[in-house]
Nucleic acid binder design. Structure first.
Lengths: 212, 212, 212, 212
DNA sequence: TATGAATGAGTTTTCATTCAT
DNA sequence: AATGAATGAAAACTCATTCAT
């Protein structure tokens, strides 16, 4: 039984999306090496061979997912932070909140973006693409750093080094999310939301109060 | 070519350590699944069979390393925090600093403890031992939480929830270390040491200043 | 060196048969655990991977052979016993003779069916399939038992318990074949055919004469 | 902790027996290849090395067990059949009954003697010893054959070929025992004892009645 | 004698990738 | 373009046997 040919550009794009969706689902639940190409194609209703028509390799589809993840996060960020009339502090708060929403609403993308590739030897080898992904991260952080810098310039925030602070802030958020992921959701015995609030309170306190 | 036989308890323990060292080195550089038993035994100058004389499986040696990591960290902690006459804030600061030192001086152990097993399906299966590791983590966090609680009780620190705060604090530290690891050491373009200081300043500020 | 690809259902079935043939040959001569997957694939001119395309495991191919053996025996039985106008005694005789012919003409299948799996721990584990095989055996014996019962009902045979007698009869046949197999064909120094005749004489005598 | 030296001949023999006992137990329950040397020595409270002081190989200990089995059976036979004043038929009956008792009371030895080595490639290789075992079997059968021959000579039994008949008889017995072993004790749904009686009735009937 | 640590060839199975159809 | 059969290099783990102590 021959499968439909993806003659039009749209049909091809749809097939690609299909495979990506399947892969996201499976990577999220079974990890990178716990997912086989066959699992992906089965899930997507395609054949093994077809997979290699759309992606170069297993690593390639993983990276495509990472790219999607960054695109999605960037879009969410843009929407959240660009309201006119927001002060810097509100923007930072919005950015942090958005990252949290991203983590909550798209846990698969979050994991793909930050975790699932850890310890996967394949990723180290071809440094070319790794850089591409790092660039995505840098772009996002730069964006936030600029906001913080503005806050500092305009006296809203303490005169810290903006870039360092951004990195620290971001790292801490990831660290907190990691608690949840690592512990299968609640070894701490505290809902993450509460933890997040706690952490942000501490952070913002530290960021702003110094001002005095 | 016959190998020296380890008959005494000490000789056996030495051989075991030898294998653990080799494994730590290789896991750190190549990840869990990027390391094969053969690589470990070659590196240690032993035969395949010998490996299984000392460890049940690849997962087993990995877990032995994790146990070592926790033991080491606990020892360092004990030494650092138990000076008489330290106030709570100094203790917290010492604990954080110690964790940083652990990360810096024993990056392999740090990775084994926190990262290298992420997404490794083998670890989920036998939940028994996983609990053991979690217990180690909880023990450490409880220890810190107690210090913070004392600080709160004695008015040195803001009246936050000690357990939540400890988790947040710890998560943030891991998050910061993760930045460095993820980016192969300096995507941020900032030495981690500076970042750490920055982050801790922010954290401690937040923790103490509220008091006013 | 690329191999011909089996795209049609027939081609696949042929390849499967090919592997089964090779396995039958090797199991017969070397036993179950004396046969490796590599031996089978080498013999069949296929690659290791291909084996697992057609069979789940070594146990699986063995069981497939057992199924084939039972199918073959059943077919032979059907053909031999279903002649119209045969009396019961003739039928029993025919059944026994057919089993003997099966043993003689398909010694490999006979061994696979009855012997080669004895003491193979792998077979005990997954009881599901073992039952399937036992069912085959029961089916065959039931079939014979029915004939004997008819013989009894119609006064041709002594009024023995049909099921018990069938089992005894069958067991004795296997026992006789076992003499030959165990002794590498002629420790007894007597051609099996003669032995069989002797045994059957004794058996039939016992079965019929009582009637008097 | 040094283990006692087996200085005296008796002590050595005891150690040997110990190992044999352990091996019999384990072979019976786990099969030949399901039993490891380590299991045997652990069970016997000896060390691996010691094993090879008493036996050449795994196959060697297995064969020693077979020898023991034949010795035991021979002894039982001798005792059972040598009552003065028994007629031939009674002797045959006693022999058969003894074999049944051997099977019932020493199932481990029975299995070692007849089944556990089937399909074990190691046994075929060194034909020298295999012959030894066959000789044991022949000896036993000869013994029985003689009794039957006497029975024939003296008119108690039908004038059949004694050797053939003995083999047939023996094979049938094994076949019946095999039913039980193969089916984990009662697929036939009939206690073996009943089956045995049934079978012997048929056999003896066949053997004697012809006489008329 | 006795020990038990050491060996390493051998086995089953997996799966990303290729390529004949 | 699409398919899915074929590949074969790995990789984890076992265990009879040896031999240094």
């Amino acid at each position: 039984m021959p499968r439909r040919r993806a003659r039009s550009k749209e049909a091809k794009e749809a097939k690609r999306k299909h495979l990506l969706q399947a892969a996201l689902h499976l990577f999220t639940n079974n990890g990178f090496q716990g997912t086989t190409i066959e699992m992906i194609t089965d899930h997507a209703g395609e054949s093994t061979g077809t997979f290699y028509l759309y992606f170069e390799s297993k690593v390639d589809i993983y990276r495509s997912l990472t790219r999607e993840a960054y695109d999605l996060l960037n879009t969410m960020m843009q929407e959240a932070v660009s309201w006119p009339g927001m002060n810097r502090l509100a923007r930072i708060s919005a950015a942090v909140h958005t990252y949290y929403r991203f983590y909550r609403e798209h846990p698969g993308y979050y994991k793909v973006m930050n975790l699932l590739h850890i310890g996967q030897p394949d990723f180290i080898t071809d440094s070319l693409r790794v850089d591409e992904l790092n660039n995505n991260a840098v772009e996002l952080l730069t964006y936030l750093s600029n906001i913080i810098q503005e806050g500092i310039d305009e006296g809203e925030l303490a005169p810290v080094n903006a870039w360092e602070t951004t990195n620290a802030l971001w790292g801490m958020l990831d660290g907190i999310f990691l608690i949840e992921i690592r512990n299968n959701l609640d070894i701490a015995g505290v809902p993450l939301d509460v933890l997040i609030k706690q952490a942000l309170d501490v952070l913002i306190e530290g960021l702003v109060r110094r001002n005095t």
